[in-house]
Simulated scan of single mutants.
Amino acid sequence: MAEPLSASKILQILRDEGLKVHEVRNWRRHNRNAKGAWGPVHGVMIHHTAGSENQVDLCYDGHAGLPGPLCHGVITKKGEIFMVGHGRANHAGSGDPDVLAAVVDERRLPADNQATVDGNSRFYGFEAINLGDGKDPWPKAQLEAIEKVSAALCRAHGWTERSVIGHKEWQPGKVDPRGFTMDGMRGRIKARLAGQEGAGGDGDTSTEPPKERPGQGGEPGPGPRPRPKYAPYPGKDFFRAGRSHPLITMMGHRLNAEGCGRYEHGPSDDWTDADRKSYQAWQHKLGFKGKDADGVPGKVSWDLLKVPNP
């Protein structure tokens, strides 16, 4: 919980993060405050525009059914930021109170199944230019800009990466942002906040195939299709202190089979430092170095390990 930053402070922290930021018209005083409060704020919400032309003007002006601003900033394919509003903006709409509570507590998000709480007053909102069809690519510069914007605001407020969510995690029926995982993006933000700029793990890109989506929160989950023989990569944020899941045990058995196990006891369902050291040995075996061999699974090394579905 925090009071929103001033327009000047937002400009400062974004530029200090290395971003190229443009000021659009009268953005500092452009808002929907007459319709309700903006603040206290609890986090950052990421969207995609679902269009590619004149998106900055659209996000500033809005349209007949939804007046602007439609966000606070627009993130282009080149990774540049166009500020279009400061104050209440029509970007989040109503969402799930349980999700809001999780953001406030900075814990893992539950499934969004309600739309009863006003999000426009509680979140910064950034629209990233993308068609949202699952095919339109997300350039490296744009993903890095999303990471930087989010990290800058989190750092300014003393938040963790868990204060950053996607619109699809807030309001039932929303799909944005589509084309990369929010768990993957939160992993990138966490690394940046820890001073590991650009750390994606195994050179992973955070992008996801348009027709593939793991279970809620990036964990393996049942779906309408038959379960694959090998467990799909559950996302970098899956592997964290406090995580307990049978997949971790299966991973440990595979690491032992590859001669990389560093366990005195186990493996077990709990993610421990022994798991990290064992996985780091696997990354070294594959030839990864530096930040790509930090002991936290990335998609490339995970797919090569071929962990059976538990």
Results as ranks from 00 to 15, higher is better:
Ala231Arg: 12
Ala231His: 12
Ala231Asp: 02
Pro232Trp: 05
Pro232Arg: 02
Pro232Ala: 01
Pro232Thr: 04
Tyr233Gly: 02
Tyr233Ala: 08
Pro234Lys: 00
Pro234Arg: 00
Pro234Val: 05
Pro234Ile: 05
Gly235His: 04
Gly235Thr: 02
Gly235Lys: 04
Gly235Val: 00
Lys236Tyr: 12
Lys236Arg: 15
Lys236Cys: 12
Asp237Gly: 11
Asp237His: 09
Phe238Ala: 08
Phe238Arg: 00
Phe238Cys: 03
Phe238Ser: 01
Phe238Asp: 07
Phe238Thr: 04
Phe239Tyr: 02
Phe239Cys: 08
Phe239Leu: 07
Phe239Arg: 06
Phe239Pro: 01
Arg240Thr: 10
Arg240Cys: 10
Arg240Ile: 12
Ala241Ile: 11
Ala241Gln: 14
Gly242Ser: 13
Gly242Glu: 08
Gly242Val: 09
Gly242Ala: 11
Gly242Ile: 09
Arg243Gly: 07
Arg243Glu: 07
Arg243Met: 13
Arg243Ala: 15
Ser244Asp: 13
Ser244Met: 08
Ser244Gly: 08
Ser244Cys: 13
Ser244Glu: 15
Ser244Trp: 04
His245Gln: 01
His245Tyr: 07
His245Ala: 05
His245Arg: 06
His245Val: 09
His245Thr: 03
His245Leu: 08
Pro246Thr: 13
Pro246Trp: 05
Pro246Lys: 04
Leu247Ile: 09
Leu247Tyr: 05
Leu247Arg: 03
Leu247Thr: 10
Leu247Ala: 11
Ile248Asn: 13
Ile248Arg: 07
Thr249Pro: 07
Thr249Gly: 14
Thr249Leu: 15
Thr249Val: 09
Thr249Lys: 15
Met250Thr: 11
Met250Ala: 15
Met250Ser: 15
Met250Gly: 13
Met251Cys: 06
Met251Gln: 03
Met251Leu: 15
Gly252Thr: 12
Gly252Ile: 08
His253Ala: 11
Arg254Trp: 08
Arg254Gln: 14
Arg254Asn: 11
Leu255His: 03
Leu255Trp: 02
Leu255Phe: 01
Leu255Ser: 02
Asn256Met: 13
Asn256Trp: 06
Asn256Arg: 14
Ala257Gly: 15
Ala257Gln: 09
Ala257Trp: 09
Glu258Trp: 10
Gly259Val: 06
Gly259Ile: 11
Cys260Asn: 03
Cys260Leu: 04
Cys260Glu: 03
Gly261Asn: 04
Gly261Phe: 00
Arg262Tyr: 05
Arg262His: 10
Arg262Asp: 10
Arg262Gln: 13
Arg262Ser: 10
Tyr263Ile: 00
Glu264Tyr: 10
Glu264Cys: 05
Glu264Gly: 13
Glu264Asn: 07
Glu264Lys: 07
His265Glu: 14
His265Ser: 14
His265Asp: 10
Gly266Met: 10
Gly266Lys: 05
Pro267Tyr: 01
Pro267Leu: 09
Pro267Thr: 09
Ser268Gln: 09
Ser268Trp: 03
Ser268Thr: 15
